[in-house]
Structures are given as structure tokens and as C-alpha cells.
Simulated assay, not measured.
Amino acid sequence: MRLITTVLLAVLALAGCASSSPAANALDAAQYAWSGAIRWNDFGGALNLVDPRLREEHPLTELERKRYEQIEISAYRDVGSSRNIKAGTAVRSIQIGVVNKHTMEQREVRYQETWRWDEAGKTWWITSGLPDLWAGE
């Protein structure tokens, strides 16, 4: 799965060469890699795109890892987004289809991604962490 994420990131980076700025291109690539990782249930790969400070402050527990293993993602839709490249911020509202592997029940979860630009690293980090696919449960 990590290979898929890396390949998708590289393809998007090449396709985005005509975009307006390097930071905008990098955001498109990061969001594409993130959504691909989530869609393919590669939560370990997605975790690599989470802000390193957040990963350090709130490491993923073994119980949380096991919970992600019990679901499949059936849909991942961007239902609204905004970006301020100059300020180094971006937000996307996402609707995720989640299927419980044991019961085969599907449900929809709303999730808001927040992103920040790391000028030193020339990369975007997601600051909202992995989606809480059990909100309200």
C-alpha cells in the first residue's frame, strides 16, 4: 500500500507541474496521497502524512490500530474545501463511507481535514490526524 501511495504522489506531482505555485502543487500531491491511503485502508501510510508534532504528542495506540483493521472504506468524497496558500493553511470537508468487516453494515462519517505548510520541509502536513470513524459510537 505504501508503494501505491508513493506512486500516486509522484504521478500527481508530475501532473501538477502547470499549477500556480510549488506550495499549491505540493498541497494537491499531499491531499491526493492522503485520500488514496485512506481509500485503500492504508492507515499506516496515512499516518506518515500526519504532522510529526501531532504523531509525537498523540501516538496511535495498538487498540486504535486494531479498530482501523476492522473496517473498510467504501467511499471518500470531498464535499467542500478552501485553501490559503500564502498563509500555509487548507481545509477540506470529507464524507467517508465506512463498512464494518464483521457486520457488513455501512455508514457515512463526516470528517474535516486541516493542513499546514511546513516551509522548512517544503511539505504539507495534516494537522487533524487520522479520521475518527467512530464518532458518536
Rank of each mutant, 00 (worst) to 15 (best):
Q70F: 04
T6W: 10
T103M: 03
A90S: 02
E69Y: 12
K101M: 04
E62W: 12
N41K: 05
I38W: 02
T114F: 04
P59N: 01
R77K: 14
R83M: 11
Q70Y: 09
S19R: 11
L63G: 15
A37H: 00
P59W: 06
D28Q: 15
Q95A: 14
V11G: 06
I94V: 14
D78H: 04
N41G: 06
N25A: 15
D51E: 02
W117A: 02
E105H: 07
N100T: 08
S20W: 14
G45C: 04
A15Q: 12
E108D: 07
C17G: 15
R116I: 04
Y68I: 03
S35K: 04
A75S: 12
R116G: 01
T103G: 02
W117K: 13
T6C: 04
E64Y: 09
E105A: 09
F43S: 01
N84F: 01
A37M: 00
L9V: 13
S19T: 12
E105D: 07
A33E: 01
E105W: 05
L3Y: 11
M1L: 13
L8E: 09
P52F: 09
A90V: 00
A46M: 12
S93F: 05
E64C: 11
R39K: 12
G88W: 03
Q70I: 05
Q31Y: 11
E72P: 13
E69C: 12
D78E: 05
I4F: 15
D51K: 01
W115R: 00
D78W: 03
A15L: 13
N48T: 13
I85M: 03
R92D: 09
V91D: 07
A90I: 00
E108S: 11
P52I: 12
T103I: 07
D118P: 00
A26Y: 05
E64M: 08
D28R: 15
T89S: 06
V109W: 06
R83D: 10
T89F: 05
